[in-house]
Design a protein around this nucleic acid. Sequence first.
DNA 1: ATGAAAGCGCTAACAA
DNA 2: TTGTTAGCGCTTTCAT
Lengths: 345, 345
Amino acid sequence: MTQPTRTRRPTLEDVARQSGVSKSTVSRVINGEPRVRAEVVDRVREVIAELGYVPNQAARQLVTHRTGAVAVVAAQPENRIFLDPFFDRHLRGIRRELARHGAQAVLLFLDEPGDYPRVAEYLGGGHVDGALLFPLRPDDRLPEMIDRIGLPTVFGGRPLLGDGDPVRGQAYVDGDNRGGARQAVRYLVSLGRTRIATVTGPYDQETSAADRVAGYQDVVPDTSAQLIERADYTQRGGADAMAALLDRCPGLDAVFVASDLMASGALQTLRERGRRVPQDVAVVGFDDLREIAESTEPPLTTVHQDVEEMGRLMARLLVDRTEHPDAPALSSVVVPTRLVLRKSA
Amino acid sequence: MTQPTRTRRPTLEDVARQSGVSKSTVSRVINGEPRVRAEVVDRVREVIAELGYVPNQAARQLVTHRTGAVAVVAAQPENRIFLDPFFDRHLRGIRRELARHGAQAVLLFLDEPGDYPRVAEYLGGGHVDGALLFPLRPDDRLPEMIDRIGLPTVFGGRPLLGDGDPVRGQAYVDGDNRGGARQAVRYLVSLGRTRIATVTGPYDQETSAADRVAGYQDVVPDTSAQLIERADYTQRGGADAMAALLDRCPGLDAVFVASDLMASGALQTLRERGRRVPQDVAVVGFDDLREIAESTEPPLTTVHQDVEEMGRLMARLLVDRTEHPDAPALSSVVVPTRLVLRKSA
DNA sequence: ATGAAAGCGCTAACAA
DNA sequence: TTGTTAGCGCTTTCAT
């Protein structure tokens, strides 16, 4: 109909003029401030609709210092992150919580080296109110860059501090990896198992892996190093680790495997070697990835984490921070796990 | 060292004062303008580093009308998009091309109804210079919202126009679904096959599916409707469709299956029914998803699309548009496919 | 080669 | 309840 000569987008001023009030009043209407006559509100709203007015965020930002957007930074190539069975759930929790606060989540990928300066500039340029970081490489320099910029930040998972200047007091949300591992191993003990082995993740690279080993050691502190085999969180790795364990300690009667994916591999090896699960060897996994845990043979007893809740908490921590910038330092949070009993132990 | 009382982030003005030049000059240095004495450039750069100055994008945006960011909108729940075998490649192409132009890609999810107003506001608020839109549901109202906002946009895949006001002349990048299907079926014909069936995608919901059927029909226009079975792009759907086809037309000697995932299901059915592939029934798929196509039994002959290239082109189309806003209307582009011969036909 | 000044579109005191 | 007035931090003529 009205094909407005698309020359220039309407501004607050245009709306003000059209509705015969001041810019302030229009601003008040837009921001839903109470002290405006209902009549005027209606009039202004009409004009806004008629003109198709949309506030210019840059201008608004310039004075409010708020953008209404939060960056989620995935420091991995897309193809890796898309395979991460947890990332989508984290993201869902984040988006839900952010939405409750009217904030928009924007996802950034950090992959090639050339991405760093650009992402840092983006983050530092005031495009977002804060950042949620899934920094996965131990030596990542992004946290440091962000620190310089002074952008509120929350990590997904306890960050592994490099040997350099540790980024002090960074807030994070993590699952209770250590506690979960303890639950798992204690359960195995309660079953009367005495030779309990473990297949670990890459504990020098990921705190989750390190914490799970620590939890294991909390319960069976005097265990032989022979009973610990390190793998890489892959199925194949789990299978191989199990084989090595069996070679070294044929008498083992239980194994705590630090991820479900590795556990599915271990189960395979156990089957090939003719060990019955759980009769001969009891197996407990970690993660409770339903697609895996429910379809292994036998179904996997494993440690559950509420990943969506973790995402939600990350967002909440960040929002708290941005809304009360002067409040006491951020506290990190560790989300409890629970043991899900199936058939493998 | 210098622990600057973190009160306020340094501004252009601070840098100017510190280096004893005017704001204009600092601005010139930052934007790499030529007409500045080298000596001054160095001095200013030093001060910038010292102060840890980062330009305020909001302020810059306000005058330049450019943000250096481009939104990629995925109109699907995270868990669906993360399963899409193509999305990560699209994204990679997009990110690469955008990076060449110094632009940052930000990914937005559009999932729950409540997301629409927020995303529209984000997109319209000037946070980004343009948007790349992925498969919206046929009745999606986002394109219309974006159109009102007047944001440059490119679609991934030819958009299915709703029955309402078609969003006129939207630019898109798509694979040559029709041409690819023709190649596949022609190849089958060249093999001497005469009873060529097809398993289609949901052609009333996705243009890719519709185009692939059309390509099939281009080559065998007089084929019986009995030889066409519709499925849903899933493996299970492909298996069922193949079964239905076999029941109706036991004499078929070839089948063009509109996706590799469905083709893997079809292959399974064929095996169960004792048909040899390709001797009894030749099979051609679509997509060339290596993980699937190379591991089926037998490996799948299929139509390849260069998805990363498609992503790259989307970005390029958008960038062209934002850099030359007054250039002639965007033209869409269709990327050629090629047939990859393996063992199934 | 550099500076002064205007202004982008908005919000936030402060007045009225 | 509403309007006036300053900026927010930057780029960009236009002078010099």
